[in-house]
Amino acid sequence: MSRTNNSLDELIEALRCLPGVGPKSAQRMAYHLLQYDQAGAHRLALALDRALQRIRRCAKCNTFTEEEVCALCTSPKRDPSLLCVVETPADQAVMEQTLAYQGLYFVLMGRLSPLDGIGPKEIGLDALQRRVSDGIVKEVILATNFTNEGEATAHYIHEMLQGRGLKITRIARGVPVGGELEYVDLGTLAQAFYERREA
């Protein structure tokens, strides 16, 4: 292969920063954009540039926003005494879809992952500590994932916030709604048994 086309190489190399994109896919994307969809490419370049300039972290919940404080955090319809801690904006989005929750959020943008060296500093636990100290939050709901990393995150947030007069809860886990025991996966069923509650 000839290596004369520098900006093409650079584009391919740049596309590889996307998750799951290797050299082959990056090349395919680059050729597609240049050959068939130059308008799309232009739009992408502009949107990326604008997003990078405008989007920052919400001062209250740490999620992406264009404002100082995001729309959800300023909404008068939400109950400011409830604060739900989630790992990612995607987790927040599904919580919102449930329509079960009317409080506010704190988005960690990650989870503790000791083997990857991701500790409390990397996920901004100090910012969470400041957030819950506003005197309005009464209950902190830990909605991190039920992976080992998510569990570790929930545990240490609990430890950190204990003794401040806050109610700290963890979302429940177990057999899914509409789940028939016969078809539930064994690990889930076993954990549901270990964590059984009084009927």
């Binding site: 503790l112 000791p114 060296g117 409390p120 636990l125 500590q129 240490y156 430890e159």
Partner: peptide, 11 residues
Amino acid sequence: SRNVYRELQQL
């Protein structure tokens, strides 16, 4: 993991 544990104890 040792470093992360130490940081967590300091919280």
